[in-house]
Amino acid sequence: MRTDALRLMAASLLLIGSTTDAAGTRAIADAPLQITIPAGELASVLPPAPGVKTVRVAAFRLDHTPVTNEQFSRFVAEHPEWRRDRVAGVFADGSYLSHWRSATEIEPHQRNQPVVYVSWFAANAYCESRGARLPTWHEWEYVAAASATEQDGRNDDEWRQTILGWYSKSARHSLPEVGKTPVNYYGVRDLHGVIWEWVDDVNAMLVSSDNREQSSPDALRFCGPGALTMEEKENYATLMRIAMLSSMQANYTSKTMGFRCASDFGTHGRNKP
């Protein structure tokens, strides 16, 4: 009797975080499963400082798919201060969750679609509720540099073409469901070809290399990615991300901007049963 109960518990634990059950139908996990990403170095398109080429990324854990409408709706149910009819404007603009049926209900077809029309503050609050956080830009870029077979596939012309092909198809009426794109080298999906994603340090991307330049601080703050010392300019897809993120205020929402969460290695967020 006791072993049966234990076995049942073990079985249900195995189901948590899995996206596909034995019958092959999608089982909705409360939160996306997190994948461990080993430490490494990245030649970032956004170098940390002038003259510094590579960024050291510590081991961390990353959701293998973006957060879905259904997952976000559970968060909103538990944290009503994040309902679209209650949230303060300073945290989310007027379009926040405007695609949902109501302040608490989603449309059935939206269940497995990535949640969009979420602000940086809302994305942050969701991740914190899981004991997690948003990935930093360098963490995101590090994992997004991987192709299906290589840790850094950015110099692979075919991979680059595949990515650009996805971006050129972006004018969709309906977002695809999460988890439908191929896994990359780490086992992570949907980094390209589905949505734009918030990062933790979104307000760190436009800082000029030296703010002691007194000439025109506004030009430095607002002239876009041109203000950055960016490398690897052939990586258009990544540069588009930076341009997009740089244009967002933390309370903005958009119909193509969603997110996924990350955790420090060893302190992975709770996947609530």
């Binding site: 400082a49 991307m205 436009l206």
Partner: peptide, 14 residues
């Protein structure tokens, strides 16, 4: 906007 630099200093908008 602000960003921590590898040398421990920060870039930030004034």
């Amino acid at each position: 906007q602000y960003r921590k630099l590898p040398n421990g200093a920060y870039n930030h908008s004034s």
